[in-house]
Structures are given as structure tokens and as C-alpha cells.
Design a protein around this nucleic acid. Structure first.
Length: 583
RNA sequence: GGCGCUGUAGCUCAGUUGGUUAGAGCGCCGCCCUGUCACGGCGGAGGUCGUGGGUUCGAGCCCCAUCAGCGUCGCCA
């Protein structure tokens, strides 16, 4: 008698006696014969109860999700009753012994059917939701991804080093989750937004090659692709160039896709930030389809059309997007599309339908055959397509056109669910103008090394300075960023000063780090990739909820545990905390 | 924090212009059935429509507020 999983048995096992443990997936009671599909993580096996055995009577009262141990004889199913849909479908187990290990209440939603429950109900009864095939499959894929990553870096002589969860907060960046200190009332640990400084210190400590599957927390609002608590593949290397990091991370992902999904990835295209913005209107382009944007100021040079003319005169741009087959849209549909564009931030939208019987446009009087021909040529559009035009200041027009590009692709079915289009974005600007203060601030984090030979721009033309910073993008999602770090203490202080920090502030907040740089910090760089997003896309899912065992809702609650929850008086007293009455 | 969508039976949903006893499928309960696998057949129970207020002779439907889930903008160095 051997224990087997519910997905294991095959025709060759016929004749052996086995023990199976699992949940009642479904029961089919024929009166004189009862079939039960027994389920575990591995699959389903049909077990049969025959009236000749003592197990038959209790089997009449089995219900969905009861937990069983059965023993019996594996036998081939009678000819013609095999089930090709099941891996175990050639055989069944004739039950000789039944033990009901536990009963289940009637579940609040059907566990044996995918896709039928409300999100909040699934989260409240997450243990039942996780029993379902979809979540079992997704979490298995997630496990394999993480395993493949660890194996890959182990093979390359990286060391996994755990960094603490209770650390010192940083005022910059995302909002910290704070943990009050009992021993130091009024003081707080912060939970890491990332192990950034700690992994850099690991380089200073001489470990050379670090990786970690790291939990990170950010107290910001959620999205379907953003959780307050997430897992990242965190990597750092010493004595490396940007190309070294890119090669390492690309190989890692290539390995993961090969080992987990058996998909051979092509080399990732590399694009500069300014290039990708011009072509796709975003720094995280979805490259599963073309539909590249075109700036068509020249096509409309000297136009009488007041909207375009005023934008051009004020230094703005007109950005064109091809809509394959879009000429078939009705005016009503174009109007709806225009509204959609406005919701995405467009000031307006001009459409040009390149119909077989001529041109139609929302700016009919100003769009002539020569305009249409020029647009078609620039975009590679054909008769039957439409062209959408957005006029605004350059960045805004590109941005809206970029969002509409994705919408057009969605409508025309160009976003293939089974395609994986990775790319690298490089040469980001080092600084951007802070919208509130109008001052230049680092576009990413302040530990990034400027592009080679561009340090001196910090005095002359800081906004032209580029960063040795890079993003990995997949299907329009940012998977993660990395950079070559500053390793010279004086340069690091320089950046902090540019941020407006005094020497004292630098010492209070980052003193430990700058001091570490003072003691022989090697040149180093690295990257972090969001494992939740990687798992989501690898599983073909559109929400992180589907690849995280116990996710938070959009309001950062755990519906199963009902967290967060108030602390007891005793706990608050010990921490010397007192909740403020609500204003 | 702003805007939007959703909330009706255990679950997924339908519910006409506000008008008697709020429907369906699945699930559940009972009976029957020895080859089903979304088993089948017969019968049955079950909801006052997220919550609170308002308009009205009358509200699932209209209005206001509120809660929850989701989407989106802000935010995410």
C-alpha cells in the first residue's frame, strides 16, 4: 500500500493498492454506485464506491470539500468510460476503506469551478479560493520562478544575504510604514521600501555579488499592479558596468522563462528614454505591437486650422497615431473615442478616416488629400485605417497618444495575451523638475551615478545630465529599475546638497551610508525586479491578486484576517502611543 | 484625497416608463437511479434588494449620505 497523489495514477498502476488523501471535488451518486473526484494539489482521481464494500454507506453522505483518506485497488476503467480530460482518466480507484478526516461546511462559493466569485468574497475565504485550480497553478508558477532565480544566481556565484525589516526611515520617496519602538518611545523603525542602501553596504563589505528575494513595503495607494507589500528580486554587483548588469538580469529572465514556461526569449531590444518617448509616448512601452507614434508638425505647417496653428505657434506638437481598420468607425464611435482621450488627459482629438471612398475627418475643412497622404505615409497607414491626432505641448501630446495607442491595440486585438515583449530603457535624465517646488530633483533615486563624463553638467546644464539608470519593461509594465551607483563619498554628498540638504541633515539621515562610502567603497551597481508583476505576466493574469497568496484590497486591508486592527490599551501604553481623536 | 463603476437568494446574474405574491442558472436539502465525470429524473427550502435617511399614495428602480469591492487621477525618490 503506497500513498499516491491525486494526479499520479496511470494505466500502468492498474492492479496495485494505493492510499489517496484529498478533498471531495465532486460527487456523482448513481444510487447503486457512487463516484467521487478526489482532489489535491496534483490533480483529480476518480474513486468509486461499490455497494459491496462497507465504505459505501458513509460515502452516501459525502459532501463537497470533505477531507478523505481512501484505500483501494487501482483498476483500468471499463472500455468507453475513460476520461481524456483527466491525466488520471484511464484509471479509477475502487475504494475498500474510507476514512473521513474532516467535514466541510457548504462553501460560500463553489471551489470546484473557476471564475465565479466576487473579489471580496474570494479574499475573505482565501483558503477556499486558493484551493481552486487557478490559484494552485499560479502559486506553483510563482514558486518555480523564484526557484529558477535563486538557482540562476547561485550558479553565478551570487550570495543571498538577508537584510533586516526593521530599519531606519528615509524622508524621500514613498511613504514609509512605521513600527513604533517599545524601548525608545517616540522613535520608530521603518519597514524597507527596498534594501537599497543595505545591499550597497554589502558591496562595501566586500561580498561582490549579492541577491535577495526581498520583501518591501510602501504605504501608498494601491492598483491592480501595485500592492503595499511586495517581493522583489534584489541584485547588486561590484566592479561592474551597466552592460554587465543588463546582461546578468536579461540572462536571469531568459533562464526563468526557459525553465518555467519553456519559452525561448529573443534578446531584449534597448531603447533610450528620449527615443522611446518619441516613438511610444511612455517610458514603459508595450512592444507586442507596432503602431508607433509620429510627430507630424511639418504635415500641418501653415494650416488654417486654429487648434493646430495655435499649438504649433506656442511650441507644442501634433502627434499622430494609426488606428488599423479605424475608418469603419461611425462618427458616434469617434466621438466616444474622443471622450476617452479626454479622460486620459487630451485637450481634444482630431480623427481622420482614410475611407475607400475618400477622407472623412472631425476637422473636415482643414484636412485635405495631401495631408491624409502624408499622414498615411508617415504612419504606414492604409485605406480603411484612421489616424488620430493630438495637439498639445510636446510631452503631453505624446503621453496621451501613447495611452491611446494601447487603447487602439486593445480594441483591435493586437495585445496578444501569450506574447512576451521585453525591452530595456536606458539613458534616463538624471533630474526632473519637481511639480510643486519647481526645483530639479533626481528622477529616480539619489544614489545613481550620472552618465560617464556628464558630472560637470550639474553646474552648467543640470537638466541635460543623464543617469546610468535602466528599466526593464514587459508588455507595458515596468518590471524594475537599476543603476550604477555613486561610490565616491564626495559625489554622493554633492547630490544630497543639490537636493537642498544641509551637512547636518545628510549626517542625520544618511550618515551611516556616506561614512561607509568613505572606507573603500568599490564601484558597484545593480537592479531590482518586481516578482509579483513577473509572476502575474508569466501567468497571463491582469491583477497581482492572482499571484499573491494573501493580497491586500485597494484600501490596503486583509479581508480574511480583517487587518489592520486597533491595538489593545496595554499595547498602546507600552508604546506610549495615543490615537488622536478623529478631527 | 478627487472622479467613475458595482452592490438583488449561499454564488453568478436578470429585474421594462416607480405599481399586487422579486425571477433564472448553479449550489443547497429530500427522494429515485450500477458507469458517471458540468451525471440524470422528480420534489423542496431560501432573498425585502449593502446600510441610513429622503421624495412619493406607492421605491429594488428616483434623490442625499454612508460602507465595501473594483477601476482611474493624484501618489508610488
Amino acid at each position: 500500500m503506497t500513498r499516491r497523489s491525486c494526479g499520479a495514477l496511470r494505466a500502468r498502476d492498474a492492479g496495485s493498492r494505493v492510499e489517496l488523501c484529498g478533498w471531495v471535488h465532486r460527487r456523482r451518486d448513481h444510487g447503486g454506485l457512487i463516484f467521487v473526484d478526489l482532489r489535491d494539489r496534483d490533480g483529480l482521481t476518480q474513486v468509486v464506491f461499490d455497494p459491496q464494500h462497507a465504505a459505501f454507506a458513509p460515502a452516501e453522505h459525502l459532501r463537497s470539500e470533505d477531507v478523505l483518506r481512501v484505500c483501494g485497488l487501482v483498476r483500468k476503467r471499463p472500455q468507453g468510460t475513460e476520461n481524456a480530460k483527466l491525466g488520471t482518466g484511464e484509471v479509477e480507484v475502487a475504494v475498500e476503506e474510507l476514512e473521513i478526516l474532516n467535514r466541510s461546511l457548504v462553501p460560500p462559493f463553489q471551489v470546484n469551478v473557476d471564475e465565479n466569485a466576487d473579489e471580496s468574497l474570494r479574499l475573505e475565504y482565501r483558503y477556499l479560493d486558493l484551493r481552486r485550480p487557478r490559484m494552485q497553478r499560479n502559486l506553483t508558477v510563482r514558486h518555480r520562478i523564484i526557484k529558477a532565480m535563486r538557482d540562476f544566481f547561485d550558479e553565478r556565484d551570487f550570495l543571498e544575504i538577508e537584510t533586516p525589516l526593521l530599519i531606519k526611515g528615509t524622508p524621500e520617496g514613498a511613504r514609509d510604514y512605521l513600527v513604533p519602538s517599545r524601548l525608545y518611545p517616540g522613535s520608530f523603525y521603518a519597514l524597507p521600501q527596498s534594501p537599497q542602501l543595505l545591499k550597497q553596504i554589502c558591496m562595501i563589505a566586500g561580498f561582490g555579488r549579492y541577491m535577495q528575494i526581498a520583501r518591501c513595503m510602501r504605504d501608498e495607494d494601491l492598483r491592480s499592479d501595485r500592492q503595499p507589500e511586495f517581493t522583489q528580486l534584489d541584485v547588486e554587483m561590484s566592479f561592474c558596468t551597466q552592460d554587465d548588469v543588463l546582461e546578468t538580469m536579461e540572462s536571469c529572465i531568459g533562464n526563468v522563462w526557459k525553465r518555467v514556461l519553456d519559452v525561448e526569449l529573443a534578446p531584449f531590444p534597448r531603447m533610450t528614454f528620449s527615443d522611446v518617448l518619441e516613438r511610444f509616448g511612455t517610458d514603459k512601452p508595450d512592444l507586442r505591437f507596432g503602431l508607433e507614434l509620429a510627430v507630424v508638425d511639418d504635415v500641418f505647417a501653415g494650416t488654417e486650422f486654429v487648434v493646430f496653428r495655435s499649438v504649433l505657434e506656442s511650441g507644442g506638437a501634433i502627434v499622430a497615431l494609426r488606428f488599423p481598420g479605424g475608418a469603419a468607425l461611425s462618427r458616434r464611435e469617434f466621438d466616444a473615442l474622443t471622450e476617452e482621450a479626454k479622460l486620459l488627459g487630451a485637450r481634444g482629438m482630431v480623427w481622420v478616416a482614410l475611407g475607400v471612398d475618400g477622407i472623412k475627418s472631425s476637422a473636415q475643412r482643414f484636412v485635405e488629400e495631401r495631408h491624409a497622404a502624408a499622414l498615411a505615409k508617415r504612419l504606414g497607414a492604409e485605406r480603411g485605417d484612421a489616424v488620430l491626432l493630438f495637439a498639445d505641448d510636446r510631452v503631453a501630446a505624446l503621453g496621451v497618444a501613447g495611452k491611446m495607442r494601447v487603447e487602439v491595440a486593445r480594441r483591435t486585438g493586437l495585445r496578444r495575451a501569450d506574447a512576451f515583449a521585453f525591452c530595456w530603457i536606458t539613458d534616463f535624465p538624471y533630474l526632473e523638475i519637481d511639480a510643486e517646488t519647481g526645483k530639479p530633483v533626481p528622477a529616480h533615486h539619489p544614489f545613481t551615478e550620472p552618465a560617464p563624463g556628464e558630472w560637470d553638467l550639474i553646474e552648467r546644464d543640470p537638466l541635460r545630465m543623464r543617469a546610468q539608470h535602466y528599466d526593464m519593461v514587459l508588455n507595458g509594465y515596468e518590471l524594475g529599475s537599476g543603476s550604477i551607483r555613486i561610490h565616491k563619498p564626495e559625489l554622493q554628498r554633492r547630490i544630497f546638497e543639490m537636493l537642498g540638504m544641509t551637512a547636518q541633515q545628510i549626517d542625520e539621515q544618511f550618515g551611516f551610508f556616506v561614512r561607509a562610502l568613505d572606507y573603500g567603497a568599490p564601484p558597484h551597481g545593480g537592479m531590482a525586479l518586481g516578482i509579483d508583476r513577473i509572476a502575474m505576466l508569466a501567468c497571463g493574469e491582469e491583477s497581482l491578486h492572482e499571484v499573491i497568496a494573501f493580497p491586500k484590497t485597494q484600501t490596503a486591508r486583509d479581508l480574511m484576517m480583517d487587518a489592520p486592527a486597533p491595538a489593545s490599551e496595554k499595547q498602546l501604553r507600552e508604546l506610549q502611543l495615543r490615537p488622536q481623536p478623529r478631527a
